[in-house]
Design a protein around this nucleic acid. Structure first.
Length: 114
DNA sequence: GTGCTGACACAGG
DNA sequence: ACCTGTGCCAGCA
């Protein structure tokens, strides 16, 4: 059926919470070389908060370009820096440093959905 | 219903 | 650069 099932009801197995769907959809459409902060994602969706976004990413982030979602400081996910750095190299994401805590240059890489 | 947890943000030290 | 406390909201035992 061409109709889109409302995933708000998690009665079906494999169905994700509505908020999770929104977050994943948004993250998936972040263009290469760009990033969004957790707070930005929540603000863009106009619901939930940074923590909820983080939780969704922790659970389902494995299916989306999670490296395009960083902290407000531009810092990467602890433990995944190496992984994200490899992607940044491919997507030419502007970085601020390479020695100290690897940080993204939000000044240029921040994506606001436009 | 309560309480803890979490891939956060911000302010202070 | 680091850690701590507080506020925020959703999911789960």
């Amino acid at each position: 059926m061409p109709q889109v099932t409302d995933a708000t009801e998690d009665g079906l197995p494999g169905a994700l919470p509505a908020f999770a769907e929104l977050v994943l959809d948004l993250v998936e459409r972040i263009p290469p070389g760009r990033v969004m902060t957790y707070g930005d994602v929540a603000e863009y969706l106009d619901q939930g908060g940074p923590r909820q976004v983080g939780r969704v990413m922790a659970l389902y982030g494995g299916s989306v370009p999670w490296w395009r979602v960083v902290r407000a400081d531009g810092r990467l996910l602890p433990g995944h820096e190496q992984r994200a750095l490899a992607h940044y190299g491919e997507e030419a994401t502007p970085l601020r440093d390479l020695a100290d805590p690897i940080r993204v240059d939000l000044r240029r890489a921040r994506w606001d959905g436009r």
